[in-house]
Nucleic acid binder design. Structure first.
Lengths: 363, 363
DNA sequence: TTGTAGGCGTTATCAA
DNA sequence: TTGATAACGCCTACAA
């Protein structure tokens, strides 16, 4: 009988027989999870030995390790990550807050694989509207995540909360001008300016813009980028229609434009691709217009649907995979070294020269 | 000075002054999380009193509760869900395993909101291919989730593992004929049979099917549903092309059909909408065909893009929101009552009568 | 109603 | 290299 048999807190019931490896004696009660104590008892070592076996560079003799690992396999032991996290203060969980989940599914796919690759797990919080953040911020805190990646807008106060609690936070595509927050962005303004330049270079003179929801900061940046550049170029008569980021609101926006005083503009600049696609469908199939001959439509994002040949949308493709990788790596390094200074990384978007708009050469 | 001040494990450092509420004495060291001990010290009560305050129906006098809650707010205390889970054996986390995340984003959106509504959280595991399950199954186990929702295929052995460990598991859209596993499905076979019936009723006689990846069970069910019904109706000459569920493979499939011996069939049945959309674009924009006049195309799923007026796809809409709600409720009841018998729930899909195929009236 | 004390399953420390 | 033993932060009898 292993000498450390009664190391466990619950004293093992007296062995019925002295046969070594009488497994019945070591099998934990049904339904209970196998713990390191069970393994220790089975292998005839102390619980700490078992623990060390699962630690990088833990000092165990080959012989002991062998005995233990045999018991581990036999009993199907897996260390309890929750208990481990309690003492190491590392849960290996990262909270992902993401708004508009249904529009940007690949973002999340890249995030999970990027985080999984480094042994981290994703605790997902999705928002239908960017305003529900407060509700979930406490939850995040309660679960003791190691870090947070946010694809949603947080208030200054909320950001400071994470800062105080020393939980690293990295934003994707949310840029805070005067707050020292980590972020990885696509340059929304630059992208829109180039789009507008090229539309104007092609001769467009009357414009409309379709915004996202009013609480979307990304939409605000994109739209103001476009509008300000248009103003620079002497075009001030720009109709603004508010959308909801989705296909239907794109259609609705175009209908509104068509019905409104002044009629349709020559070009419609949409805050995202989904709405641009809606505009195109409304123009072509409802109003019988040709795109781009009668109307130019541009979007932003570079979602996969934009490349479908029914649309072939002119848009700005955000290098989302690069951005996500950058965000993950920023977060991981800040989990390792909490003293790293806040950093903002900005990627340029790539103009996708589709056929949904007439484009000139800028300059 | 509160009398229970040294209830905490680390004895409070001797107070510098006797002033009541000299907050300095109760403030935890910087960077450390506020614990229930900190609150207890600050409020001058025992730690268990604090704990009871956060428990439904915990007995605390109004006066004490008031004192405690004041301290809670002051110190910004939040119970540590990890530590709580260790003892209650309830993490309030549900693992979500989902394949093909980028094709079915709304599934996940519904899932998170459904689970959040009941105070549960989503630990997300995404798969690019259904074959990577083994890798993550241990992880799930380590995190002690209360249950699992799977939108991916698991082997019989893997399912039994969850059963042994008494972790409730509910599948979405994966049906296991001879295994007692919980599942919520859309009837893939029924949907395909009706589609095929109506295509045949409209006079189509030559068919091709485009499958999903070979490891996708859903694809197998859909395709065999269609092929078997065609055989029943006396149509045995059906070309089968393997796709990858995405747009490009749909285009590729149609090109293959067009290039292959025998030329194009009259109707193409695709295992999902994305590929059907690819087929339509290839037919119209590459081959100059009219859909549905020259070629009928049908899909399956009812994704939002299928309804876009450029496609107006004939498809089977899965009542995904209902399905997800059913899955969540099945899971939650099994977390409460682990003895509930395994159950399979099957929803009918709804034929969406778009314009991408000529349809007859069945029977 | 309140406080004491023990335990959840791990890791960390330290003496042997 | 090993094994006691003390945390980690919380919940829960049980006793007061």
């Amino acid at each position: 009988m292993p000498k450390a048999a009664n190391t466990g807190k619950k004293a093992a019931k007296p062995a019925k027989q002295t046969t070594a490896k009488a497994t019945a004696d070591f099998t934990p009660e049904a339904g209970r999870r196998v713990t390191s104590y069970d393994v220790a008892r089975y292998a005839g070592v102390s619980q700490s030995a078992v623990s060390r076996c699962f630690k990088e560079g833990g000092s165990v003799s080959p012989k002991t390790r062998d005995k233990i690992m045999k018991a581990v396999r036999k009993l199907g032991y897996q260390p309890n990550a929750i208990a481990r996290g309690l003492i190491t203060r590392r849960s290996n969980m990262v909270a992902v807050i993401i708004a508009n989940l249904r529009f940007y599914p690949e973002t999340l796919a890249y995030l999970t694989s990027g985080l999984n690759a480094s042994g981290n797990h994703v605790l997902l919080f999705s928002l239908d509207h960017e305003s529900e953040v407060d509700r979930i911020i406490d939850q995040i805190w309660q679960y003791g995540v190691d870090g947070v990646i946010a694809g949603a807008h947080l208030s200054k106060k909320q950001i400071e909360l994470f800062d105080q609690r020393k939980i690293p936070l990295v934003f994707i595509n949310r840029l805070y001008r005067d707050i020292a927050a980590n972020s990885v962005c696509c340059d929304q303004v630059e992208g829109e300016r180039i789009l507008v330049d090229r539309l104007v270079a092609a001769g467009h003179r009357s414009f409309a813009v379709v915004t996202g929801p009013s609480d979307s900061v990304v939409s605000q940046q994109r739209i103001s980028g476009a509008v300000e550049r248009l103003a620079d170029l002497g075009i001030n008569d720009v109709r603004v229609i508010e959308g909801e980021y989705d296909y239907d609101s794109g259609r609705r926006a175009l209908r509104e434009l068509a019905d409104g005083a002044g009629g349709l503009p020559q070009a419609v600049v949409c805050a995202n691709d989904m709405m641009a696609i809606g505009c195109m469908d409304e123009a072509r199939h409802q109003l019988g217009l040709r795109v781009p001959e009668d109307l130019s439509v541009v979007g932003f994002d570079g979602v996969m649907q934009a490349a479908w040949s029914s649309y072939d949308l002119v848009t700005v493709r955000q290098p989302m995979q690069n951005m996500v990788e950058a965000a993950v790596s920023m977060l991981l390094s800040r989990i390792e070294r909490p003293d790293l200074a806040p950093e903002k990384r900005m990627f340029s978007g790539e103009i996708v020269e589709g056929c949904s708009a007439r484009l000139g050469t800028s300059r």
